[in-house]
């Protein structure tokens, strides 16, 4: 397992070069350049804000655009890392057939590429916070930990998905659908407090309520998104009770996912 980190260091130049290539190529002939990368969360935020004005969502007195943008930052980072990561091996078929280096470089590169875009999103969030006069507190130190956690979640899915996608391209097709469904299962449009109110306080699903809530918090994005909002906007400690189930689940799956990837890796060149 610690091989990941050794390789990450050993192949840092390669990962840096491939990341730089990904970014340069994507925006080379585009006039707006890398601004396209942050257009997605901004557009989604605008749409959600528009929808919110019809349905009314309780935000605890905080400006909704800010709350939802703070949720969209980790979400879009996660979503893009996974969909790029899953396709990263198959889209580099020509390299895989011609030259050897550890194949986890591809999902890692996909993620590092998105990390660069994430930084730009943070700059925009900072601008919004200044506009709404919401100042970050000492709790913001949690953010790097949450980014790392998001990366681990994205890698766990990417390793398994990328390896499977080499054999069955169905995975590449299914992932975007699964991800867009998962967005509704994560507190992106609505805040987590809404779910807690319904299930934990009002026990809306009767006897199943607590089980359902546990199931919901198994989704690691629930903890991540709520943590982001807490640390940055609400200026409180992250709620660790919603983080643990997802974190434990991911840390259990990650070794298997990596092991699966490394096992499948030897046959990539033959089947791709």
């Amino acid at each position: 397992m610690h091989n990941i980190f050794i390789n990450l260091y050993k192949y840092r130049e390669l990962i840096a070069a491939l990341t730089w290539k990904n970014i340069v190529i994507r925006y080379k002939q585009a006039y707006l350049g890398i601004l396209w990368a942050v257009l997605k969360p901004i557009m989604l935020m605008l749409v959600f804000t528009l929808v919110k004005s019809f349905v009314g969502i309780e935000t605890g007195g905080l400006p909704y655009p800010l709350i939802t943008f703070a949720a969209l930052i980790p979400w879009v980072f996660f979503q893009e890392s996974v969909s790029e990561g899953v396709n990263s091996v198959t889209s580099n078929a020509s390299l895989i057939k011609k030259i050897y280096f550890p194949r986890e470089v591809f999902p890692l590169t996909a993620m590092v590429t998105k990390l660069v875009e994430l930084l730009i999103s943070f700059a925009i969030l900072a601008g919004m916070m200044i506009y709404y006069q919401v100042m970050p507190t000492v709790n913001a130190v949690w953010i790097p930990a949450f980014v790392l956690y998001t990366m681990i979640v994205a890698l766990t899915i990417s390793f398994f998905g990328a390896a499977m996608n080499v054999y069955y391209r169905d995975i590449g097709q299914a992932i975007p659908i699964a991800l867009s469904l998962l967005m509704y299962g994560s507190p992106v449009i609505y805040p987590l407090s809404l779910v807690q109110k319904k299930l934990v306080i009002e026990q809306a699903a009767g006897a199943w309520s607590n089980d359902l809530y546990f199931l919901y918090s198994l989704n690691p994005l629930v903890g991540i998104i709520d943590g982001f909002q807490s640390a940055l906007i609400r200026a409180t400690q992250p709620d660790f009770d919603v983080i643990y189930p997802g974190l434990i689940l991911i840390l259990t799956i990650l070794p298997f996912s990596y092991w699966f990837f490394k096992r499948a890796e030897s046959w990539f060149a033959d089947v791709i």
């Binding site: 130049e13 070069a17 491939l18 340069v24 020509s94 390299l95 030259i99 050897y100 280096f101």
Partner: peptide, 30 residues
């Protein structure tokens, strides 16, 4: 491995950029 040279050459990048990229792919330090 000089197996089919130019495997890692990317059409969008310039020649100079490709030298750096391919160098990295072949494991040549920057």
């Amino acid at each position: 491995p000089l197996i089919e040279v130019g495997a890692g050459v990317n059409p969008e990048l310039t020649g100079r950029e490709n030298i750096y990229l391919n160098g990295a792919i072949l494991g040549i330090p920057k």
